[in-house]
Amino acid sequence: MNIIVCIKQVPDTTEIRLDPVKGTMIREGVPSIMNPDDKGGLEMALQLKDLYGAHVTVLTMGPHQAEAILREAFAMGADKAILLTDKKFAGADTLATSHTLAGALRSLDYDLIITGRQAIDGDTAQVGPQIAEHLDLPQVTYVENLQYDGDKQITVRKSIEDGYQLLEVEIPCVLTVLSSSNEARYMSVRGIMEAFEKEIEIWNSDRITINADKLGLNGSPTRVAKSFTKGLKPASQLYEVSPAEAVDIIINKLKEKHIVN
């Protein structure tokens, strides 16, 4: 079984501060990490490797610094890593990104493609589904659990707002995975030592089966009209009262907001 996991290097948004004047993100000094949902997807793939001896390839598009997350993936247990890097890829929105990734995937053997649900820097959740559309593959999004029959069929648990769905899907397919689906393994010390001896394949636009007009800024219909920082919500009010009084306060507040009559 060949699994390809699409991963992305993102700024660690838990460490991000905003410029109070410009309202933009201060990127300086913010560590870059493997996107958490993608790491959940990689862990899912590595569990299939543990159980069924699957071959796991990690694929990312980004600048050369993105090698760091590919090394991390090696240290966790990935077998092969590909970095898609080219000036022509720069400025890509989700559509151009998915075209680029799908272009690379067309040159690879796969039974299963896993992506994270969404990246913490953009939160769009679009790239995984778009890859499935470009490659004309079935897709299941928001996957939190996976069972494989060892042949052609996988049963996945898809998280929905108020519960979950159990779905059966035949491979090849695309799954987008939640970070909460598992506890990603630690890198092992030996894995870290060996990660730097393995080769990362560097692919530029020539290696990808896709028209140039679909790449980078040219292939990106999205235009950011304006970016702004959300206003602060008013401070919450604390009441230190008995439970009975608390109930009255809550009921009155709900009435004020016309949530109950």
Binding site: A68, R71, E72, A75, Y186, M187, V189, I192, M193, A195, F196
Partner: peptide, 15 residues
């Protein structure tokens, strides 16, 4: 080194 950075990331999270 980059290797030590990765190692530090792992050991710090583990700790």
């Amino acid at each position: 080194t980059k290797q030590q950075e990765l190692f530090l990331q792992m050991i710090r999270k583990f700790a």
